[in-house]
Amino acid sequence: MAKVVVVTSGKGGVGKTTSTAALGAALAQKGEKTVVVDFDVGLRNLDLVMGAERRVVYDLVNVIQGDAKLPQALIRDKRLETLHLLPASQTRDKDNLTAEGVEKVIAELRKSFDWIICDSPAGIERGATLAMRHADIAVVVTNPEVSSVRDSDRIIGLLDAKTEKAERGDRVEKHLLLTRYDAGRAERGDMLKVDDVLEILSIPLLGIIPESMDVLRASNLGSPVTLADDRSAPALAYFDAARRLSGETVPVTVPGEKRGLFGKIFGRRAA
């Protein structure tokens, strides 16, 4: 049965679009039929990160308003035939997203895909609440930094109140994806640790994505990081996260925690 996942955070710039692309591609690389949907109407970027910006003809708003059929708006990835993109509109504003329209599109996507990954816009307004509305699972993307953690807490509250599942008295499955993590800085006491963030937000951990040059490199190239370099540290972390999302039990390792002599000498300073 199809699973609808929302990738959300409250705060902007923490890695929602990067994570949507990487998780979507990782699931598609396992052979699962996956579609990534951009809900950031007016400020779309998932097309760019996926390298499909020159192939956008129709978008989510066109489908909702009946100007295009869903199959016409779906863009199939050139590298992976199991991966599809439904772009957001760049010219209209988010008022063109209607609750009924989104519901119809999601229902139709459920018929042909295993995974529907919705990339939420930042904030807690209409775009963000519509993106989370039909979710079965939420991936809360958080940086180990105070403002991001606070905003994630707020989003968790909304997931428990403003989703279809919550209104039915059911629960949206929530997972934490900690991005831009630097094990060395956390070890020195200069960055919140994984356990700190987990204790504060108290939702299960989906994965830890290390701060890495490979992420920027992949977006420069227009490729999800799991496709750009599938041996890189962030790609491996996203592969693990995708496996956990599918229900597999994968032991959590903190990327970059293996320290050499230099790291050991300086790592102790924090204690």
């Binding site: 930094e145 105070v146 956390a186 020195r188 006491g189 200069d190 960055m191 919140l192 640790k193 700190d196 504060i200 924090a270």
Partner: peptide, 9 residues
């Protein structure tokens, strides 16, 4: 320098 993460937490 004092560790800042405990304060953040």
């Amino acid at each position: 320098r004092q560790a800042s993460a405990p304060t953040a937490r």
